[in-house]
Amino acid sequence: MMNAFGVLSAVVRRDLLVALRRKSEVLTSLFFFVIVASLFPLGIGSEMDLLRKIAPGVLWVAALLAAMLSLNRLFANDYADGTLEQMALSPVPLGLLVTGKILAHWFVAGLPLVLIAPMLGLQYDLSPRALMVLVISLLLGTPLLSLIGAIGAALTLGVRGGGVLVSLLTLPLYIPALIFGAGAVEADISGLGAAGHLSLLAALLTLAVFFAPWATTAALKIALE
């Protein structure tokens, strides 16, 4: 028997390997983020004050939508080819396997957004300090998006038109992450300090780490019945 960590890393490795061989799906959400975030400066023009003001909100909304793009594939493929069934029947707790899948989803759909965000932030004339806060807020926020999104993806599994439904279901749940994430960057720009917002974001993440896999597991078991 393998220990819990061994199983977790095996699930992450498997999902990353699958994603690596299906590159188009991975690149879609990244390109979406880059394009949406670049459209605003192009549309608005070079009014630096305005761009600086809207930057946190726009970048965060773009990240939110990009992370959501890949959500309906999180469990749908495993559901269709029968591997989800085998996961549910495995002696390993399903919650552990689900945690691995969420982690892999973050590596594929969340982490690239965090890494490219400072480059996009430059278009909005953000200061280096504000860029750093943006990266930290996304680093805390994107795992939260994957965790909450997993619940939505599991609830809409096997439902016809689940792709639209998952957006309607998860976007309202993303609101706290958006408020505190964008708020952190705004607070830093206006000189108030981002610590408060970031702590709240970290608290939300901690809460989600404990509850989201559990809720996702429960939803998956219902979907498999």
């Binding site: 061994g6 498997r14 390997l17 080819d81 591997t83």
Partner: peptide
């Protein structure tokens, strides 16, 4: 051990990888 209608294989993975990951999901090395 249950084998359903679906083969529970990932199309992108090789036969060997499928067998190894399938076992890992069941906690078997």
């Amino acid at each position: 051990t249950y084998l359903g209608h679906h083969n529970a294989l990932k199309e992108e993975l090789t036969a060997r990888e499928n067998l190894c990951t399938g076992a890992a999901l069941a906690g078997v090395k």
